[in-house]
């Protein structure tokens, strides 16, 4: 090609020849290889994510009432439970471990939670949380609110912020609402 170019062009600069491919920053072949690799990687990634979503891993949490309902079925299995903390947590000890004990509620059901580990910064009464752990028989160390002979032992906590944005003036109102929630069954 190059030889042909030179014979064809009158201009001194062979770069001007129409037959010379325009210089790319990377050779076209390398760029195509990168594009091919990216395409394959993306396709594989999407396949993994979709199958993951359609599989069991996609079930993110049971609300507290569902978790109570499915207690037999769940047995000692690990799962995630969502509920709203109904009161300030009690700092106490359980099997020589420092724990937080507090009740969470959802749709009328109440669960006593014993949580090991640091809670997220935003953890506070009235703001829903998702807890990862399992059912344990027997009352926990803290206040017994549910009083059904079970507690939920969790070791991971995420705050599930709802879509309710308010400025700080409304804070007291929210605490009041949470307290009202605490008066559930």
């Amino acid at each position: 090609m190059k030889a042909v170019d030179n014979t064809l062009t009158d201009a001194a600069d062979t770069e001007l020849s129409p037959l010379t491919p325009r210089p790319a920053r990377r050779p076209a072949r390398t760029r195509r290889w990168i594009a091919a690799l990216v395409t394959v990687a993306v396709a594989a990634g999407v396949a993994v994510l979709v199958s993951n979503l359609l599989g069991d891993a996609a079930l993110f949490f049971y609300n507290a009432d569902e978790a109570v309902e499915r207690r037999d079925e769940l047995a000692s299995q690990r799962f995630r439970l969502q509920g709203t903390p109904l009161s300030e947590p009690e700092n106490t000890f359980w099997n020589d471990q420092p724990v937080l004990a507090f009740p969470v509620g959802f749709d009328g059901a109440v669960v006593d939670v014993v949580h090991t580990g640091d809670p997220p910064e935003l953890f506070q009464p009235g703001v829903p949380v998702v807890l990862e752990g399992a059912w344990r028989q027997g009352p926990g160390p803290g206040p017994v609110v549910a009083g059904d002979g079970w507690h939920f032992a969790s070791d991971r906590m995420l705050v599930k912020h709802d879509n309710d944005y308010r400025d700080r003036d409304v804070y007291d109102e929210r605490i009041y609402e949470a307290d009202q929630g605490g008066a559930l069954p």
Binding site: A28, R31, R32, I34, A35, A36, V38, V42, G45, L49
Partner: peptide, 16 residues
């Protein structure tokens, strides 16, 4: 997934 599929769109275009 949306992000990756659209990255795939760009890489398919780059395949030439």
């Amino acid at each position: 997934i949306l992000f990756l599929v659209m990255v795939g769109y760009l890489s398919v275009r780059a395949l030439g």
